[in-house]
C-alpha cells in the first residue's frame, strides 16, 4: 500500500516539476523575444546616436585616446630611456601627434567589436607568412629553371568586401600569395595579374576572401555579430 502511495507521490512530484519546466521555458522564450526586440531598439538608437553629435564626439574622443595610447607604446618602444623626463616628453609628443591625426587611424571602423577584429588579424598573420614562404619557393623554382613556364594574364573579379581596410588587406594578401599581384581596385572590382591559370582558378575559389571577410566581420559573417550582441545582452541580464 505504502509503495503505491509512494509511487503516486513521486508521479505527482514529477508532474509538478514538468509544469514548472514548461512554465520556465515559456518565460525564457518571451525573454529572448524581448531581448531581440530590445537589441534591435538598442541598435537603432546606437546607429541614430552615431550620426548625432553625442556619439560622434564620443567616437572622436575614443579615436583620440586610442591613437594616443598606441603612439605612447610606440614611443616607449623606440626610446631606450625610461626615466621620467623622457616618458613625459613622449606623452606630450604622442598627445600632440594624436591631436593632429586623430581622425586618421580609426576612420570608419565598423561598429563590430574592435578587439575581436584585432585578435583575428593577429591570427591571420602567421597564415600570411606561410603563404609568402610558399610563394617564394614557387618563384625560386620558377626562376632558377632554364625554361620559365609562365603564362601571365590579367584577371578581374568582384569582391563582397565593403570597408577600405578589408579591401587593402585582401589586396596586400593577394600580392603576397603565390603567383598573383593586385594591380588595381576600381570600386568592387580587383584587377589581378596572375602568373599561371592554375593560380587564377584558386583565386576565383575566394578562399582568402572569406578569411579576410571573417577578420573584418563582413559579408556573410554579419549574422555572427548580431548573435554575439544577443548573447552578451543575454548574459548581462543574467537570465
Amino acid at each position: 500500500m505504502e509503495v503505491t502511495l509512494l509511487i503516486e507521490a513521486t508521479e505527482s512530484a514529477f508532474k509538478i516539476l514538468e509544469d514548472a519546466r514548461n512554465h520556465a521555458a515559456g518565460i525564457m522564450d518571451t525573454t529572448v523575444e524581448l531581448m531581440a526586440e530590445e537589441s534591435r531598439v538598442l541598435r537603432d538608437k546606437k546607429c541614430r546616436a552615431i550620426f548625432t553629435g553625442a556619439q560622434r564626439r564620443k567616437t572622436r574622443f575614443h579615436n583620440f585616446m586610442g591613437t594616443a595610447i598606441i603612439l605612447f607604446i610606440f614611443w616607449s618602444l623606440l626610446s631606450g630611456h625610461f626615466d621620467l623626463f623622457h616618458l613625459v616628453l613622449g606623452a606630450v609628443c604622442s598627445l600632440a601627434v594624436s591631436y593632429l591625426f586623430h581622425d586618421l587611424l580609426f576612420v570608419n571602423v565598423r561598429i563590430g567589436n574592435l578587439r575581436t577584429m584585432a585578435w583575428r588579424f593577429l591570427i591571420y598573420i602567421p597564415w600570411l607568412l606561410g603563404q609568402i614562404l610558399i610563394a617564394n619557393m614557387h618563384v625560386a623554382a620558377l626562376v632558377l629553371r632554364p625554361k620559365m613556364p609562365i603564362s601571365p594574364r590579367i584577371i578581374r573579379f568582384k569582391t563582397k568586401l565593403e570597408t577600405d581596410i578589408s579591401k587593402v588587406t585582401l589586396a596586400n594578401s593577394i600580392t603576397l600569395t603565390p603567383g598573383t599581384i593586385t594591380i588595381d581596385i576600381r570600386g568592387d572590382e580587383f584587377y589581378v595579374h596572375a602568373l599561371s591559370h592554375m593560380v587564377a582558378d584558386d583565386l576565383y575559389g575566394g578562399e582568402m576572401e572569406d578569411r579576410v571577410a571573417h577578420i573584418f566581420m563582413e559579408g556573410d559573417h554579419l549574422y555572427l555579430q548580431d548573435a554575439l550582441d544577443a548573447a552578451r545582452i543575454y548574459e548581462t541580464l543574467g537570465v
Binding site: 591613437t67 603612439l71 623606440l78 616628453l89 601627434v97 594624436s98 591625426f101 587611424l105 589586396a171
Partner: peptide, 28 residues
Amino acid sequence: DVIVRTVARLLMPFITLYALYVVMHGHY
C-alpha cells in the same frame, strides 16, 4: 588608389612620431 591612400593614412601618425623621436633624441 585605395591601397596607397589607406596605408599612408595608417602610417602617418607613426611617421610623425618617429620624426619627433629623432628630434628629441638628438644627443643620444
